[in-house]
Design a protein around this nucleic acid. Structure first.
Lengths: 172, 172
DNA sequence: TATTGTTATACTCTATAACTATA
DNA sequence: TATAGTTATAGAGTATAACAATA
């Protein structure tokens, strides 16, 4: 992987830095995605919600418009059938509903119901409170920097991964 | 972004900021932990390795000393039995071995073999190359800031979660 | 024929429960 | 009796394969 031309001025990320940050990222990520933080916020929003379900709700809230099954799957980086079942469950709980796409009758875009919207907002508010607490003692400048750099890094990293996965790129 | 109430000292993390960054974090996290990036680096280190296995190897490498089953489990935030099986598989591949703890014969600390050490280092080097590529176009100051702030945030966030989980804290 | 979505099934990772050995 | 680890089993989450409907 990573064919680096020698004589490169740039990457002065040391192996030590990475070794130091890797376990932290792993932990943070597991804390965010596995049981703990997400579950807490989900329970606060609606005790009957599980993780994949809130993922769908937040995806719809963030999009701000109805999304197709495929659109939700793409944003959540999972496959279609998984979303189909999550949406069916959410429909039964009246948290989302289907609308019609006049241009393509194969698709049935999903939108939040009023209840679903409120639930998603409660979830986000709960997470927000948690983040605010963690950042509470931080200098303002550091907070701004973190959000800015993290957003940029996530975008760059995701874009690079997407490129690596392009078929015909020969790195697989 | 970030509409700041003037004169407010404390948590000026807006709901919009969070909504913008949440899907990115989710994606990044899923890219790191799910199939893609980790798998790629694991394949580069040893095509027969799966994700949990490299997790154990890197944990041992980062620790720099033999760890017990419980120590590995704690650092990886999983339960003991999971580690027992991963270590058994790694032993069969001669990537780790057991040593004796003279003070406690119930425990059998695990250490990397020469091969295991090299494999773990190849994995880290592969990840390192990938991170360096992503950060390649970044100004030096931004890179430093990101690593510094990210490490701090991960630590603060993990610590807060741990506190929330303390029994008898009444927030459950 | 290509695309969108659904149904049915299987796999990966991790947890819980019951047990053994040493402290 | 408490602690470290193991064995056996179960569950959550997500993927793959085969199919249906519309473009």
């Amino acid at each position: 992987m990573s064919p680096e031309s020698p004589g490169e001025p740039a990457p002065d990320l040391s192996s030590e830095d990475l070794l130091a940050i890797l376990p932290r990222l792993t932990r943070l990520s597991s804390a965010l995605n596995k049981g703990r933080l997400v579950d807490r916020a989900a329970q606060a929003a609606d005790p009957s919600l599980d993780r994949p379900a809130v993922g769908v709700l937040v995806t719809l809230l963030a999009a701000g418009e109805p999304l197709r099954i495929g659109g939700i799957a793409e944003r959540m980086q999972v496959v279609g059938p998984h979303i189909t079942r999550q949406v069916q469950a959410l429909e039964r709980r009246h948290l989302v509903r289907r609308v019609d796409d006049p241009h393509d009758r194969r698709a049935r875009p999903i939108e939040l119901t009023e209840t679903g919207d409120q639930t998603a907002r409660r979830y986000v508010a709960s997470l927000l409170g948690w983040f605010a607490e963690v950042l509470d003692g931080w200098p303002q400048g550091d907070r701004d920097d973190l959000l800015r750099l993290l957003a940029r890094f996530a975008d760059d990293a995701t874009a690079r991964l997407a490129r690596l996965e392009q078929p015909g790129n020969g790195e697989d």
